[in-house]
Write a protein that binds this DNA or RNA. Structure first.
Lengths: 235, 235
DNA sequence: CTATATTTGTCCGTATGTATC
DNA sequence: TGATACATACGGACAAATATA
């Protein structure tokens, strides 16, 4: 077991500070000399930490001016109505989705339980969620195939779940339950989310129901822990 | 970079299955031989995975009978009213708190923002949250000292925040906001939470307000990712 | 209650890759 | 470079506890 290098500890601290909005986007970080004094290390050690943050796209250094915060973890509100595109646009982000896979197969026992169906086919929709062009989440949604026979066609035309469900005669849906756990990124997840294997992941398991309370979607989303903050209530 | 051992991958899979309620408390897991066949490994490798789960207290093996699920990650509901003791008792758990530190100091800038106060003293309450005797979370709460001068005395007598606030003329409080991120456990956190360094952590940052909407508490809680599932809405 | 099969616990060993000195 | 220790993974054999016919 090799202990964490000092520069990494410093970059972690600064990343947390940015995530906690102690340094907001546009803010100028303290100068390298000040940071070096605060952490009691050489300026080069601080530079290595800042270089790591710059590499992640969190900060940008301008010669002669200072180091500025460029990005902050995306706030992702979760509540009664969770809509990916609306949520991100409301937060001033530009949302996008990338389709990874879309097929139909027999549901597992857990999926049957979640969707309250008995031994049936489900559509499986896997993809990536992007915020400002950066991958923030990997998701997998399953839908009862018998009720939504043409859903895959709709999703292929428009990746929005909201739109596809509306086209399937579900004008509105609400979130019945959300379960949140923390995990470590597996190799494949890390690849998709463009993070390191073993990086922290926020995993949410959710069920969306239609107006009558019948489940229409069971989803699982893996958020890159460093890139997203789930929020509840007003900020 | 050393890849993850097979036994760990297996224990992770089983832990997820237990967390997803595929195997419920009291259930008997498939026999070691069956699991070995399913994962295509030697029985000893499965045994090592099961030993890890037994060490975490998730399963218990009975010679001649099988391996049984003893616990499931604690469901921790978060919503408008978050009460540690009430939440856990409602979930059939036995809650407890352990006081780590209780002192009064000058508030940081972030704490002033959260509590909507200007340059004042705050009480800092740090401790551990236990469920069925197992540590599930590490927390730090800050309270405005000017408004609650005797709060530390109340907390020393009874670790319940709800009780201490009630004694301080705050009969009720609600959660104004919750922010959730995933982190990796630092060495000190790992020590307190009795997990490994680098294990996944759910960190929530929250603000509780009184009936008039004035912040009374700003808290940060670090949940052991493997031991807790945050839940929203009915399950 | 008695056999018998099942299942976990413990011991022996072999081989391989990795980290450390 | 070599020597050593450690973790991982596999294979087999048998003992001990349990379930069941």
């Amino acid at each position: 077991m090799t202990r964490t290098p000092i520069w990494k500890a410093i970059s972690d601290t600064l990343r947390d500070d940015i995530g906690d909005h102690i340094h907001r986007p546009g803010d100028k970080l303290p100068t390298e000399a000040v940071l070096a004094a605060r952490f009691g290390v050489n300026r080069h050690t601080v530079r290595q930490a800042l270089a790591a943050l710059a590499d992640e796209g969190l900060v940008r250094a301008r010669r002669g001016a200072g180091v500025f915060v460029t990005a902050t973890p995306t706030d992702y509100p979760i509540g009664q109505r969770v809509r990916f595109h609306q949520n991100l646009r409301a937060a001033g982000r530009s949302p996008a989705k990338k389709l990874l896979a879309l097929d139909t197969r027999t549901a597992t026992k857990a999926e049957c339980d979640a969707l309250q169906i008995t031994d049936a086919q489900v559509h499986v929709y896997e993809g990536l969620s992007l915020s400002d062009g950066q991958v923030i989440a990997l998701f997998r949604s399953v839908f009862p195939a018998s009720r939504f026979p043409h859903l895959p066609d709709y999703l292929r035309r428009d990746p929005s779940v909201t739109a596809a469900l509306r086209a399937s005669d579900v004008p509105d849906y609400t979130r019945a339950s959300t379960r949140i756990t923390a995990k470590l990124a597996s190799a494949t997840q890390a690849l998709h989310l463009q993070i390191n294997e073993g990086a922290p992941i926020l995993r949410t398991t959710n069920i969306n129901v239609d107006a009558s309370g019948t489940p229409v979607e069971a989803g699982m989303t893996w958020f890159a822990g460093d890139k997203v903050t789930l929020t509840l209530g007003a900020d």
